[in-house]
Design a protein around this nucleic acid. Structure first.
Length: 454
RNA sequence: GUGGAUGUAGCUCAGUUGGUUAGAGCGCUAGAUUGUGGUUCUAGAGGUCGCCGGUUCAAAUCCGGUCUUCCACCCCA
C-alpha cells in the first residue's frame, strides 16, 4: 500500500493534550457560569435535515451549509432533466437531504418545537457543541468550531437580556479578558429605515452601516446609493451616522429622530431599560450603544448583542440577540427567545495572544513509579493502587526500560515526582521519592509518601 | 465565491544570476554516566525541496496547473 500523506480537511484542527487542557479550562469556566444562572444542558445531532436549516440564515448562510450526500445509489433517483440542464440547485436538492448544523440556535428552535410538551416555559438551556461552516478559513475563522450557546425561550422580559450580559461579564472577568459589549436593537434599525423612508431596503441599509467603522462614512454612502437608496434618504441618515457623545446625550437625540416611528421608539426604550439595569448592577465590562451593529442573521427582531476583546483584534468573541418568532417556522407561534453564543475557538486565540492561560497545570500525573522489572513491579503495584485511592494521580511506567528513558519521559511530561523502588528499597520496605524540580530524594515509607504527595 | 502571498528535516527557518553529495538551530537516538531526568560534551539518524506536469545538458531555484496555510473582500463565532 502506498503511504499517503495524512491530512485533515481545510479549516479543521486536531487538539493535542496541551490544547485540550486549555480548551477545557475555557469550557469549564463557561459551563460553571451558565449553571450558576440556572441554565440546563442539552445536545442535538451534528446533522439536521436540510429543511430545518435552509432559509434560516439568509442566502449567504445557505451557501455556507455543509451538505451530506444521501447514502445508497442516490444518482438513480435524479431525474434526467436535472442532469441534462446541469441544474445544480435542483441536483443538490435531490441528492442531499441532510446537512451539518450551522449554529446551535436553529437546531434549538427545532428542539423546542419538537419537545414542547415536555418543556416548562420559560426554558433556559445551554449547549456546547461544534458547528460547521463552509467558509474560507482565516484568522479566527474555522470551518469547524465550537459554540457555547445560552438561550431563554418563552419569556419576553428584558431581564433576560440583562442576565445574559451579566453572564458575559462574569465569564470574561473569570477569563481575564477585557470585554466590550456592544448593544443595539433591530427595532431601532427598523425605525431608522422607516424614518428615512426606505423601509423596503432595511437589509441593505443595515449591512452598509455595519461597515461604518471599517470603511468610513464616505464609502458607506457610496454603497447605499449603489444599492438604490435615494439621495434624500442618505442625507437624512447622516446625522444618525455622525451621532456621538455619551449615552445620556445619544438617547434623547435618537428618540427625537425616531419620534414618528413607534417601532423605533420601542427599540430605544428597550435598550435604555437594559442599560439602566446594567448600570445599576455595576457591570465590569464596558458597554455601549452601537447603532452600526447590525448582525447578519435574519431572525433577530429585538436586542442585538456583540462582544469584542478590547486588546485583541479578532472579530466578535460572543454574539446574539432576541428572536421573536424563530419557532414560528416550525409551527409554534408567539414564543420569544433571546440568546447569545460564545465562540470558544476565538476565545482560545485571544487567551493565547494575551498569554492568559493559567500556567503550571499541564501534567495531571503527580508521581510516576519507575519500572525496574517483574519483582519490583509486584512490589509497587499494590502501593500505586493505594496511592491512587488516596486521591493522588499516579502511574507506573509500562516497560522495564532503561532508567534514563523512564526519567526523561517523566521529565518531558512534567511529572513533579518519581518513585524508585529496587532491590535495596524492597529489602527495607521503603521507597525512594524524588522531587523532579529540586532533584532532592528521600527514602520514605508508603504512608510517608502518601502524606507528602497529598 | 473573488483577489494576493506562502510551502525546504518532527519544529523554526537559511539556501547566491538555474550547476555536482540541500544546510543551521532546536528536538530525536546513542554514548560519556550498568539505579537518576532537567545542565554540559561527543557521535548519529532523519529530506520524493507540498503534489503533478513543462522548459533546460542541468530545476529547491524558471513556467503552468493543483492542494495547503495565511491575508484582504464577502460574511461571521
Amino acid at each position: 500500500m502506498a503511504a499517503q500523506k495524512p491530512s485533515i480537511p481545510k479549516g479543521t484542527r486536531d487538539f493535542s493534550p496541551i490544547e485540550m487542557v486549555r480548551r477545557n479550562y475555557i469550557f469549564d469556566t463557561i459551563k460553571e457560569v451558565f449553571c450558576r444562572y440556572g441554565y440546563q444542558a442539552i445536545e442535538t445531532p451534528a446533522m439536521e435535515n436540510l429543511s430545518t436549516l435552509l432559509g434560516k440564515y439568509g442566502d449567504e448562510g445557505d451557501r455556507l451549509l455543509f451538505k451530506i450526500l444521501n447514502s445508497g445509489n442516490y444518482l438513480d433517483k435524479v431525474d434526467e432533466h436535472t442532469i441534462k440542464e446541469k441544474d445544480q440547485a435542483g441536483l443538490s436538492r435531490q441528492i442531499s437531504e441532510k446537512g451539518l448544523r450551522y449554529d446551535l440556535t436553529v437546531p434549538f428552535a427545532r428542539y423546542v418545537v419538537q419537545h414542547r410538551n415536555e418543556i416548562t416555559f420559560p426554558f433556559k438551556r445551554y449547549q456546547i457543541q461544534p458547528v460547521w461552516r463552509a467558509d474560507r478559513p482565516q484568522r479566527g475563522r474555522y470551518r469547524e468550531f465550537f459554540q457555547c450557546d445560552v438561550d431563554v425561550i418563552g419569556s419576553d422580559s428584558l431581564l433576560n437580556e440583562v442576565e445574559l450580559i451579566q453572564i458575559i461579564d462574569d465569564i470574561f472577568s473569570k477569563l481575564n479578558i477585557k470585554a466590550v459589549v456592544k448593544l443595539n436593537n433591530r427595532k431601532i434599525l427598523a425605525g431608522i429605515a422607516e424614518v428615512i423612508g426606505e423601509s423596503d431596503n432595511f437589509g441593505h441599509i443595515t449591512v452598509a452601516i455595519d461597515k461604518l467603522e471599517k470603511i468610513g462614512i464616505e464609502k458607506v454612502n457610496e454603497e447605499l446609493l449603489g444599492r438604490g437608496i435615494s439621495q434624500e434618504a442618505v442625507d437624512k441618515l447622516q446625522p444618525i451616522l455622525k451621532m456621538e457623545g455619551k449615552l445620556k446625550e445619544k438617547f434623547p437625540k435618537l428618540m427625537e429622530i425616531l419620534k414618528t416611528s413607534p417601532t423605533g421608539i420601542k427599540g430605544c426604550e428597550e435598550t435604555m431599560t437594559v442599560m439602566r439595569h446594567l448600570k445599576d448592577l455595576g457591570i465590569k465590562a464596558k458597554f455601549e450603544l452601537d447603532l452600526t451593529l447590525a448582525r447578519g442573521l435574519d431572525y433577530y427582531t429585538g436586542a442585538i448583542i456583540e462582544v469584542k476583546a478590547a486588546d485583541v483584534e479578532i472579530g466578535s468573541i460572543c454574539g446574539g440577540g432576541r428572536y421573536d418568532d424563530l419557532t414560528g417556522v416550525f409551527g409554534l407561534e408567539g414564543v420569544s427567545g433571546v440568546g447569545i453564543s460564545f465562540g470558544a475557538d476565538r476565545i482560545y486565540d485571544v487567551l493565547s495572544e494575551l498569554n492568559g492561560f493559567p500556567s503550571g497545570f499541564r501534567a495531571s500525573t503527580k508521581v510516576m513509579f519507575v519500572n525496574f522489572g517483574e519483582e519490583e513491579v509486584k512490589y509497587c503495584l499494590p502501593v500505586i493502587d493505594r496511592v491512587r485511592k488516596a486521591g493522588i494521580n499516579a502511574e507506573l511506567f509500562p516497560d522495564a526500560a532503561k532508567m534514563k528513558k523512564q526519567m526523561s519521559w517523566a521529565n518531558s511530561n512534567a511529572i513533579p515526582f518519581t518513585v524508585m523502588a529496587g532491590t535495596e528499597e524492597i529489602k527495607s520496605k521503603k521507597f525512594m521519592l524524588k522531587d523532579m524540580t529540586t532533584g532532592e530524594q528521600k527514602l520514605l515509607s508508603e504512608s510517608e509518601i502518601i502524606e507528602k504527595l497529598k
